[in-house]
Design a protein around this nucleic acid. Structure first.
Lengths: 168, 168
DNA sequence: TATTGTTATACTCTATAACTATA
DNA sequence: TATAGTTATAGAGTATAACAATA
């Protein structure tokens, strides 16, 4: 389909495909390591990130994280057992729960947020102000384009993560 | 630690931290979806990517993918059952196996590679040649910096993936 | 009828610990 | 002794299907 010349791989430049794939792997690795430093999985860390700014229902969490509703039940069960979240009744809908951070959950979410920022800063430590602006701008462009094309609410993308396949 | 001003979040720019985190999530999502389109998990897809250019031993696969050797046993078992890889004896070392793609494994690896390239191209379809060069160059910069600082063999980074935590 | 959520089930993926076989 | 790999075990995370309760 695309006939553009998009790759110039050499020793200093992996080309756009490998460059983005490798960069994304490193960022995910950082997120995973940060979560692990608080004895959390990547997924639990992402959950805390979502709940920091929202109090979604189970169904909303499923949509945001790209999980089946049944997977969400287990995820919230484990977080609840660990004392990080609570299920609150929703007065307007007797079927739904609103998932809310506990005090400890909020503390952890804050720690994770700070640490991720610090680590990403470190990742880009060698770049100049102007390079950072460019990188930030272009990354945002790709994200916004993707969201537009997939009809995704931008506010949910930050926590969008790889979905597992369904091998038979 | 860092006193640099690194964020200029507004409606069009999420800032460097959220920008990179969101971008990486999208790329991982693409990789996962491509693998899923061939009924493979993200990990199995990454395995095929590695084996496309190497014939590593079990221990080397563990190192490249950041897994414990016991996890690698299961990974290769499942791939072997599916007919994607074979364990070959290593003449020089009676303990070791070299993992090699089967014909079908090689076919799938090729399909996945093409599809990932196509999808990443699409992800960046709105960018100009010059923007793509910049993005590619900067992504590579971050990757190389990270590899340098962590003493990682660049050739293994493309397939480096988030590691799972070890909650007690 | 449709939606929200849980349960039952099965599988992938992950690590730790203990083990075998080879170097 | 050290290394390569497997097995046993435990648990997180994932989906599908069937279900109960509510809208």
């Amino acid at each position: 389909m695309s006939t553009r010349t998009k790759r110039w791989p050499n020793s200093d430049d992996f080309g756009i495909v490998d460059g983005l794939v490798q960069l994304s792997a490193i960022v995910q690795r950082v997120l995973s390591d940060v979560a692990a430093s608080e004895d959390l999985s990547l997924l639990q860390g992402r959950l805390l990130g979502v709940l920091r700014d929202h109090e979604p229902t189970m169904a909303q969490i499923a949509r945001i994280l790209g999980l089946d509703k049944s997977s969400t039940t287990g995820l919230i069960d484990r977080a609840e057992i660990r004392g990080l979240v609570e299920r609150h009744n929703v007065p307007e809908d007797g079927r739904a729960f609103r998932v809310v951070l506990t005090r400890e959950g909020r503390r952890l979410a804050s720690v994770l947020g700070s640490e991720v920022t610090a680590q990403i800063d470190e990742l880009t430590a060698s770049m100049s102000e102007s390079e950072l602006r460019q990188l930030s701008s272009m990354a945002s462009r790709v994200v916004i384009d993707f969201a537009d094309r997939h009809g995704i609410d931008i506010s949910t993308v930050p926590v969008q993560t790889p979905r597992a396949p369904r091998p038979r």
